[in-house]
Amino acid sequence: MKDILTIIFRLTVACLLAGAIMGGAFVLTNQAKRHNAELNERQVMLSLLGYASVKSAPASLKLYPIYRYLITAKGGEEIGYLLPGEAGEAGMTLVILDLDGKFVGQRPVTLSPEAAKEETKRAAAIPAALGGDAKARYADQTIVVTEGGQRLAYLLPGRFPGFKTFITAMLALNQDFSIRGLEIMESEEDPGLGGEIVQKYFKNQFKAKTLEAMRKIGVVKTPLPDEYRRALEADGGTGSGGLSAEQVAKIEAEYSGKDIYALTGATISSRSVTEGVRAMVQKFVYRLGLLDQALKEQKIAVPF
């Protein structure tokens, strides 16, 4: 009996000690983890926009996120866009459109743009702004980039099925909806095969593809032409292959209307990425058109 008591006592002490160590480590690292994740994301966004580091981006460059919500109310489903308020205002605006894109209403949301970055805070503020028993479900976010008050580009974080599991990517579009850049954030494709989607010679192929081209291009299994490959690898970094920036731009422009060259041994992965990017672009362009129209008709002031 005494034995059992000692065992229980010692185990409890051991568990408490272990818990204290882990809890301490959690408290110490969690802040850093969030900070680094945010920094990393910002770095990726800026490099997609064409700035090598956080410092080299001009101060006039502003990123405005738009959060999209699916709202289930009595009258059926609606789409809510949580937008930052006009410059100088602290709150945000929720613009509600119906499923066909017609303007339904607009609600002020008491939430600072900084606090809106956290999903839990948004999840608390939005139902309060909606009132009643309407439920809001977070769908996705897109980011409008402005420079000196002018729209410069759009950043779309997205997720689509790959060959094995989901691929998380970030897509940058120019103002005319041609692709500015693609970055693969997370993927679990096979290393050496589908894993090559993160390589420059694959992801840079999407660069400079126009909206029109993006609607209809496919994936071809012919080998990647050598000069195109060199241009893709030289793009946006220390130029290997001895190509100047102009030459790179020229070769890329030449291939901009052509299909995507599939990775060797990973046609399905290549096709998944192409389809995923296509769907992201098309959905975004459709939604942004409706939102812009509603903003214009209702004269809702937004900073972008």
Partner: peptide
Amino acid sequence: IRIPTYTLTIATWVTVIDMVLAAYMP
């Protein structure tokens, strides 16, 4: 309770290194 204690010790340190790596070397 030798073995459970070992497991607990290892699990604790694994959790710590896991969190540290996730935070500083994502």
